[in-house]
Write a protein that binds this DNA or RNA. Structure first.
Length: 135
DNA sequence: GCCAACGTTGGC
DNA sequence: GCCAACGTTGGC
């Protein structure tokens, strides 16, 4: 079991939209590092759902229901997408500020590589954020 | 809306 | 294969 963080700008595709849709294709990734992370995802892996730009906070948990397969919206055929479903909403969103101000989280890929839209999350980081979000 | 960071592209 | 130019992302 691995943990991830996936980013979306809420006005493009929000958590509420995912909840309404139940499941979505996580397509549109055009970055090799992010694509490699998508390829490393296994069915059942959990992802924090982060709202970038507006909100800048983790708002819920999504679960990988289908591993990487070709993204039809990519004309070059190089990139992949996965399918995720809404798992659990956070009671309290965990903001980027909180993450930056928490020592154990300040080395997260989210902070270090702000432009990477699909980032790995360690078990330790996952547990801390989960405690904040569900607390 | 600006700009820093950084990934990608293309000329050489 | 280097590197300058360019485009995109995302925090501020």
């Amino acid at each position: 079991m691995q943990y991830w963080l996936i980013k979306s700008e809420p006005f493009k595709y929000s958590w509420d939209q995912l909840v309404a849709d139940k499941t979505t294709h996580w397509d549109g990734v055009r970055n090799y590092q992010a694509a490699n992370n998508l390829k490393a995802m296994a069915k059942g892996d959990l992802c924090f759902f982060y709202h970038s730009n507006e909100g800048k906070e983790i708002v819920g948990i999504a679960e990988v229901v289908k591993t990487a397969y070709p993204d039809p919206s990519d004309e070059t055929g190089k990139f992949v997408m996965v399918d995720v479903k809404a798992s659990k909403p956070f009671k309290t969103p965990v903001t980027l500020d909180t993450i930056k101000n928490t020592k154990a989280l300040s080395a997260m890929a989210l902070v270090k590589q702000s432009r990477l839209s699909v980032c790995p999350v360690t078990k330790a980081e996952w547990d801390i954020i989960l405690a904040f979000g569900m607390g």
